[in-house]
């Protein structure tokens, strides 16, 4: 029997006065990198990076499931709550998990809503991180759909969510990884994708904060897939242009979930992004 080199553990943090049991996966040795999943999914999106022998030789990757997602339970009393993620709760969760893991200024790599919060953290808590890789991330995306579609008693929100987000997966993605990526959305808990989208499509507070990001202290690199309909290359370029010193690379054959939908295609772009973060070591 051969185990993968990925280890999964649980820890408990307090966020906005409530205890949250968090599932964390980790692998590798070296520079710490904290990885954030997209809306409606979980840490499994990072499975290929955590299994990458070369990248894990020089980096220690951590990926965790947000509360309500994957193997992190919702908080006590969730059964009568409407889950709606907020910027403040998201920021506090990332900082609490990073602190609980004992990380010293990790690189923060987030995709989609994870990329959005990475940029919020770059603006508000840059001292806690060494650099930011914002994947499929933009300043703000209003919804072109009704987020209430994804939480209703007469239909399966996960299946509808998966069918919708399939629009953002590149036709270059290997079929097996396309469906592995969609499976996470199909498994998402009731109302969780909707609650994530509430944060992603209604909070535009990042727009006014982009200019305060200091890339001379913490580099910011954006990665965006050409097949991403939600965060288009134009959206990412606009966002990067509003951050003095930020860089942006368009990935021609990738979509909105690059590390999960097309691992081999994403890998060189992510390795390049990690290399760009190293300038922070000399600041």
């Amino acid at each position: 029997m051969t185990f993968e080199p990925v280890t999964g553990r649980y820890l408990t943090v307090t966020v906005q006065g409530r205890r949250q049991r968090i599932y964390v996966e980790m692998a590798g040795t070296g520079t710490p990198v904290l990885c954030l999943h997209t809306a409606g999914a979980d840490t499994r999106q990072w499975r290929h990076i955590l299994n990458d022998a070369e990248l894990t030789a020089t980096h220690r990757f951590f990926a965790f499931d947000m509360p309500w997602h994957g193997k992190s339970l919702p908080p006590e009393g969730f059964q009568t709550e409407e889950y709606l993620l907020t910027t403040d709760a998201y920021i506090e969760t990332v900082l609490a998990v990073s602190h609980a893991l004992g990380l010293d200024r990790p690189i923060l790599a987030g995709c989609s809503m994870g990329g959005r919060i990475a940029l919020q953290l770059a603006a508000l808590h840059a001292d806690r991180f060494a650099g930011f890789i914002a994947i499929e991330a933009s300043d703000f995306q209003p919804a072109w759909y009704d987020i209430d579609w994804f939480h209703r008693p007469d239909a399966h929100g996960g299946e509808m969510g998966a069918a919708l987000v399939s629009a953002n997966i590149s036709p270059h993605a290997p079929d097996a990884e396309r469906w592995n990526t969609l499976w996470m959305f199909m498994q998402s808990g009731p109302g969780v994708f909707r609650g994530d989208l509430s944060f992603y499509t209604r909070d535009d507070s990042l727009i006014g904060r982009l200019a305060r990001i200091d890339t001379t202290r913490t580099p910011v690199h954006l990665l965006v897939g050409a097949y991403d309909l939600t965060c288009t290359p134009e959206d990412a370029r606009r966002t990067a242009a509003a951050i003095p010193g930020a860089t942006c690379t368009v990935m021609d054959e990738l979509g909105h979930f690059p590390m999960s939908e097309h691992p081999a295609g994403f890998r060189p772009f992510f390795a390049d992004a990690l290399a760009r973060m190293k300038v922070a070591d000399h600041v």
């Binding site: 072109w144 919708l164 399939s166 629009a167 590149s170 036709p171 270059h172 050409a226 097949y227 309909l229």
Partner: peptide
């Protein structure tokens, strides 16, 4: 097409 260009790869892409 087997691998459509961006935007042509999905019905909602055509709308976009």
């Amino acid at each position: 097409q087997p691998r459509p260009r961006p935007g042509f790869h999905d019905l909602f892409g055509l709308v976009k």
